[in-house]
């Protein structure tokens, strides 16, 4: 995350929001809403839907800020997780998955030239000091791409199977193998 997402600042804002301080919510919104909206857009691929998800997420932050604990997760991790999960809910409720599959050329590029041309390649190659990047790069391409399609773009196992024209059981095996190796590499 960018330096502007100072976790100490965000934590203090969340503490004030827990006390129902609307000004703090507004400050938090100004700081993180564009990034969170970007996370939602990667999954729902629709401006109206991502804004709906953003709204629901901020209402959830308003309600649940008192439950946030810094010793459990960093503020941006907590908020990114909230918006990712709400985005997945939105996909399901809007029955958008088929439409999204047709729209999503970016994912196609995941399977070309070993990640070149994908926006994710920049991320994964940008900082080799990030353990996750090293661990993902070490995975077999298909295992890695199945994980990235799910996490970054919100694809279900069925979506992935249809997209790459493989049986769903193959996808399940890739995911299981990939996540198992990732867990070991990440030291869990």
């Amino acid at each position: 995350m960018k330096n502007s997402f100072d976790p100490d600042v965000l934590e203090k804002l969340l503490a004030r929001i827990a006390l129902k301080d609307q000004k703090a919510l507004e400050q938090l919104y100004r700081l993180v809403a564009p990034k969170l909206n970007g996370v939602a857009m990667m999954i729902v691929h629709d401006n109206d839907l991502s804004n709906d998800v953003l709204q629901e997420t901020f209402l959830q932050i308003w309600e649940k800020a008192g439950e946030y604990r810094r010793d459990v997760s960093e503020p941006m991790t907590w908020m990114s997780s909230l918006i990712r999960y709400r985005s997945l809910d939105k996909l399901k409720s809007e029955n958008r998955e088929q439409k999204r599959r047709e729209q999503h050329e970016e994912v196609q590029r995941l399977f070309q030239d070993n990640l070149r041309g994908s926006p994710l390649s920049d991320i994964l190659n940008s900082d080799n000091n990030v353990r996750l990047h090293r661990c993902l790069q070490a995975l077999e391409v298909l295992n890695r791409n199945a994980i990235l399609m799910a996490y970054y773009y919100g694809y279900s196992r069925e979506d992935i199977a249809i997209h790459i024209e493989k049986p769903i059981n193959t996808v399940k095996v890739w995911l299981k193998r990939g996540l198992g190796r990732l867990a070991k590499c990440l030291g869990h």
Binding site: M1, S80, I123, D127, L132, H133, Y151
Partner: peptide, 8 residues
Amino acid sequence: FQPLHKGT
């Protein structure tokens, strides 16, 4: 997984 959002 959070570092993946750095480039979002």
